[in-house]
């Protein structure tokens, strides 16, 4: 019998973890529903209270958390290759900064959820246009300039966000903080995020070998026959799309995009055809679990999930780091 490769085993583990995290999200909450009832409601949807709680409240939120986690991990992994920088995360290019500033302006103006989303989207688009426009002048594309432009822009937005926090009336500051730390309580429909996740994730996995080549450096990738610039632009667009889709649902959830790809690498997977799907599943399962904890740990008090991702993620990462040093 053939022994399964390590990434294939990890894939099964991650798939199982994903299903478990989604099931736990459906099971947990102030309204007691047994595992059997959850299964029953999933398999034979019959209108009723249990059905409404699961299909109306918990399932959409779990689906949103799952998609956001996958999107952030995908964007992080893509940007780490594009910028060839281990510290790159979905927020390094200022996209979330633009979205945050837009959302906070709308919040301060007392706008509703739809208006806030539109403003966040507009802010993100402005940031993307500025970063892309400045680093892709006259056909001359430089990844180093892309990184610097993004970091500078992010710093600018961060100052504007601080300004908005100081100027806003006290009553609104808490809502703003939740948005900034990342929160799924007011997440809208996750359908768009799922489409972005499946489409960009699928395309990225189909081109994974190209990412492996790009990780060797631009000149080397070019020497091996890769059309480098079109690929870099495609990665930028894919990462920007994934980031925007995630930020619009959940605000700026930290830690997932930076650390999940590294966690997968620490498990010994480096080829992107495995790294990308594993990172997406791990990020999705991780954020779903973190969100379940965020809404149940101190119920009825809800925590912003961005706080939980770091609180749970940091010890796990430290253990992984310690373990892998012993192995290498």
């Amino acid at each position: 019998m053939a022994v399964m490769s390590r990434p294939a085993v990890l894939m099964i583990v991650m798939l199982a973890a994903s299903v478990a995290s989604l099931f736990a999200a459906l099971l947990s909450g102030p309204f007691p529903i047994s595992a059997l009832q959850v299964l029953d409601s999933l398999l034979y949807p019959v209108p009723g209270l249990v059905h409404d709680v699961i299909w109306g409240l918990r399932a959409p939120r779990a689906a949103a958390a799952f998609a956001v986690g996958g999107l952030l991990a995908l964007a992080g992994a893509l940007l780490q290759v594009l910028l060839r920088n281990a510290l790159a995360d979905p927020y390094v290019l200022g996209i979330s900064g633009g979205a945050a500033f837009g959302a906070l302006l709308a919040l301060a103006a007392g706008a509703g959820a739809a208006m806030m989303n539109a403003a966040a989207f507009a802010g993100a688009l402005v940031a993307i246009a500025v970063v892309f426009g400045l680093s892709f002048r006259a056909g001359d594309w430089d990844v180093y300039r892309l990184l610097l432009t993004g970091v500078v822009l992010a710093a600018g937005f961060s100052a504007l966000v601080s300004l908005a926090l100081v100027m806003a009336p006290d009553a609104q500051v808490k809502g703003m903080l939740f948005w900034l730390m990342g929160d799924l309580a007011y997440a809208g429909s996750p359908a768009a995020a799922w489409i972005v996740l499946v489409v960009t994730g699928g395309i990225a996995v189909a081109h994974a070998v190209r990412l492996d080549l790009l990780a060797l450096g631009e000149l080397k990738a070019h020497a091996l026959g890769l059309a480098v610039k079109p690929l870099q632009i495609a990665i930028f667009v894919a990462a920007a799309l994934a980031t925007v889709a995630a930020v619009l649902l959940a605000g700026s959830v930290g830690f997932v995009g930076l650390m999940v790809p590294h966690a997968v690498r620490l498990m010994g997977v480096t080829a992107h055809r495995w790294l990308l799907p594993l990172a997406m599943l791990l990020g999705a399962a991780f954020l779903t679990t973190a969100d379940t904890a965020a809404r149940t740990l101190f119920a009825p008090q809800q925590l912003p999930v961005g706080v939980l991702t770091a609180l749970i993620g940091v010890p796990v990462m430290l253990v992984l780091l310690g373990r892998s040093r012993a192995r290498v």
Partner: peptide, 20 residues
Amino acid sequence: QEEADYWGSALDYVLLGRFP
């Protein structure tokens, strides 16, 4: 010179030469 470290195995590294 090669700019970047490669994190995979020697075989995976050589396989990248098959890209074209």
